[in-house]
């Protein structure tokens, strides 16, 4: 097995496995975000559960952090290795003749998503870690707010049009990344043979619906408060 993950195909499979986990994470993250539009109370309840449940916090969260870090680090390593495999560059290369722009530029959509994750961490994740793990406040409440604080914090962040603009732009790149990444991950684990059309359709739908959903939530709160 150790030899397998050191091979070129093993690395592809490892990228795909981390991608599957991240794509599942995106789906559940969006589901919870959408609750904030339809029911602030339910959004607060679910957020508090996710933010305080020991299985989520101490088992799933470390797996998520590992998957994110691994996917980025391995992505960069593979990019460097692939550049090395190129040798001398072509004087004229017509990449558009045989492949999509986003399939050839996963590294750039990936770097944009990485930049977004940093902003996202500063906005939400670092304050959460500070409140819970450094201040030791696991109550989910804050002075001056009835009930849980999560909905208020979300609305407060999405009041700034510049921040919402940055979020929208990042999600466009996430969509481009997923437009190639979804089917690519299945191909890497050997799954597309014979089922290509169905997977391509689901991949296209996923890469549009997921980013559009996140954008909808951000824009909804910008214009409704």
């Amino acid at each position: 097995m150790g030899g397998f993950f050191n091979s070129s195909i093993g690395r592809k499979v490892a990228m795909a496995l981390s991608a599957f986990f991240l794509m599942f994470f995106l789906l559940q993250h969006l589901s919870i975000n959408l609750l904030s539009v339809f029911s602030p109370e339910l959004f607060n309840e679910v957020s508090h559960f996710m933010g305080t449940n020991p299985v989520v916090q101490f088992a799933l969260q470390p797996v998520l952090i590992f998957a994110v870090v691994f996917h980025f680090v391995m992505g960069f390593i593979l990019e460097v290795r692939n550049k090395k495999a190129n040798g001398v560059a072509y004087v004229k290369n017509n990449g558009a003749a045989n492949s999509s722009w986003f399939s050839r530029n996963m590294i750039w959509s990936g770097v944009t998503i990485l930049a977004f994750i940093l902003l996202h961490f500063i906005d939400f994740w670092f304050p959460e870690i500070n409140t819970k793990f450094i201040q030791g406040d696991w109550s989910g409440t804050i002075e001056g707010v009835d009930g849980y604080r999560y909905y208020e914090e979300l609305v407060h962040k999405f009041a700034n049009p510049l921040r919402v603009g940055a979020y929208v732009l990042a999600f466009v790149f996430l969509g481009l990344h997923l437009a190639h990444g979804f089917t690519s991950a299945f191909q890497s684990v050997g799954g597309t043979a014979g089922r290509k059309k169905t997977l391509q359709f689901i991949g296209k739908a996923y890469s549009i619906v997921i980013p559009a959903g996140f954008v909808f939530v951000a824009v909804y709160h910008l214009f409704n408060h």
């Binding site: 399939s103 050839r104 996963m106 191909q187 597309t192 043979a193």
Partner: peptide, 27 residues
């Protein structure tokens, strides 16, 4: 040789139309 990132360019340019399914099978 480098790592495949499934762009599918090879399948398009292959003079014999070898399918990407062969890469999935090898995986």
């Amino acid at each position: 040789f480098g790592n495949c990132t499934n762009t599918g360019a090879c399948e398009v340019e292959c003079p014999k139309g070898i399918s990407l399914d062969n890469i999935a099978r090898m995986n």
